[in-house]
Design a protein around this nucleic acid. Structure first.
Length: 454
RNA sequence: UCCUGAGUAGCUCAGCGGUAGAGCGGGUGGCUGUUAACCACCAUGUCGUAGGUUCGAUCCCUACCUCAGGAGCCA
């Protein structure tokens, strides 16, 4: 038997008899003649109020219905005299499916996100985390519809790889050799060192140079010992790659991508957004609306450096052409100077990996980063170097062996085309979309240094 | 990995050199179509771990562990 979920019941516009509802108890309040039970099944933010009269044969169960218990209620959906809900479920009978101990950790009042991380197996039952993961699901779906509607193909690039996408960070080793083994890599499962992927980009380029416009959307792994609110060892990344796109087209797609996701967010997650705006970040909706309504600012790296130098601001790290923009610099640009997302492009060649396309000035490459207020870098991308000689020269300059990337440079050897792409950190986007300040709270089970529980 | 801060009841926190308190949650009773219900009473505990100082340490000192914020790296 499939009974309607609470989201469904709450959407009804007229009373209905003979309804069954199931869910977890959020709170129960006793009254003289009846008890009020609020149940939530995670299908939406709001719960269903159950009214159970003390004259029912099941009334003896009420004292056992504590917060956290799972129950099933049979009754009639009726107009509610109370002011806070249109309909309520007037019980004819109810049963306890599973009782909850009085020590159930989730109570009616405020819990810190730090505490909730310790009970990651229970936290999806909270308003906050439930809302985050409903949004996550809808945004994941919207990522697919955005690309599919534009003729992109979804490519599943490998999780296990033997190629290091240069510059993307430390990798997790994959091996079947026993711990402490001194056997050579040739004796290992794949006959060579293998790792968990840090990026599907190189393989994505292969498919872009065959099928035109493609995207990947899957787990990505970084073995960096990063302990910040914005880093995880396992996260999901979206990486479109487009043949015949130059950097400008790449930046335009990135902006459309973000705005499309925000439109879907407003259309499908209104209750969750209101909740985040009220309890997480009071400026969230205004900021997202502003992002949606205004064009992303575009400045070259060189212009950004000038802006920072002329700002009159004292920064902890000095601003100098040729140095990476620090977090404080990125924040100044996005949060104070432009007060909106900013795309910074044409970075110094020395700061970027070998595969980015050299500009004619000889000192910059066609790279771009999208910076958003509150998060910093949310997208990093580039036009790829399609000229074989320049690509191989860049590999050598960065100490890489071109033979290792033979298959990659073959794309330039046989029918090379200009092409571009970028990476969007899905969790970074979710932080931006929900106002939640810690990446560990937008991923179901966070993997960070020292933590792989649950 | 570096810097800073914090670990006290199931949760959120206060407190103090003389072995502990509030609110919520739980129990009991009362009231009530309630809705973070309300009122009264009751019970919460190796005060993060291990050492040290002291007549005496939850409090002061040291180390370690854990967590958070900031930084670096990046998405």
């Amino acid at each position: 038997m499939i009974s309607p979920d609470i989201r469904n019941l709450l959407a009804r516009t007229s009373p209905e008899g003979g309804v069954t509802a199931q869910g977890w108890v959020r709170t129960r309040r006793d009254s003289k003649a009846c008890t009020f039970i609020e149940i939530n099944d995670g299908s939406c933010l709001r719960g269903l109020q159950v009214v159970a009269d003390n004259s029912l044969s099941c009334a003896g169960l009420y004292p056992k219905i504590l917060t956290g218990a799972s129950i099933r209620v049979m009754g009639d959906l009726v107009a509610s005299p109370g002011g806070k809900q249109a309909f309520e479920l007037l019980a004819k009978d109810l049963e306890i499916i599973g009782e909850a101990d009085p020590a159930y950790p989730l109570q009616k009042k405020g819990h810190t996100t730090e505490f909730l991380r310790e009970i990651a197996h229970l936290r999806p039952r909270t308003n906050l985390l439930g809302s985050v993961f409903r949004v996550r699901s809808r945004m994941a779906h919207a990522v697919n519809t955005f690309f599919q509607e534009r003729g992109f193909f979804y490519i599943h690039t490998p999780i296990i790889t033997s190629s290091d996408c240069e510059g993307a960070g430390e990798m997790f080793r994959v091996t079947t050799l026993p711990q402490g083994s001194t056997a050579k890599p040739e004796a290992d499962f794949f006959g060579k060192p293998a790792y968990l992927t840090v990026s599907g980009q190189l393989q994505g380029e292969v498919f872009a140079c065959a099928m035109g416009k493609i995207y990947t959307f899957g787990p990505t792994f970084r073995a960096e010992n990063s302990n910040t609110a914005r880093h995880a060892a396992e996260f999901w990344m979206i990486e479109p790659e487009m043949a015949f796109y130059d950097l400008e087209a790449d930046m335009t797609l990135a902006e459309e991508h973000i705005k499309y996701l925000l439109r879907v967010l407003f259309e499908t997650c209104g209750e969750e957004l209101e909740f985040f705006n009220k309890f997480v970040d009071k400026e969230l909706i205004a900021r997202l609306q502003h992002t949606l309504d205004s064009p992303f600012q575009r400045v070259t790296y060189t212009e950004a450096v000038d802006l920072l130098l002329k700002s009159g601001r004292k920064f902890e790290y000095p601003v100098e052409w040729g140095q990476n923009l620090q977090s404080e610099h990125e924040r100044f640009l996005a949060e104070e100077h432009f007060k909106s997302p900013v795309t910074v492009y044409n970075y110094p060649r020395s700061l970027k990996p070998f595969y980015m396309r050299q500009n004619d000035d000889g000192r910059t490459v066609a790279a771009m980063d999208v910076l958003v207020p509150g998060i910093g870098e949310i997208i990093g991308g580039s036009q790829r170097e399609e000229r074989l000689e320049l690509l191989e020269a860049a590999m050598i300059a960065q100490g890489l062996n071109p033979e290792t990337y033979r298959w990659y440079s073959d794309l330039r050897r046989y029918g090379t085309v200009p092409h571009s792409g970028y990476g969007l950190g899905f969790e970074r986007f979710l932080m931006f979309a929900t106002g939640v300040g810690n990446i560990r709270d937008v991923i179901p089970f966070a993997r960070t240094p020292g933590h792989a529980d649950f």
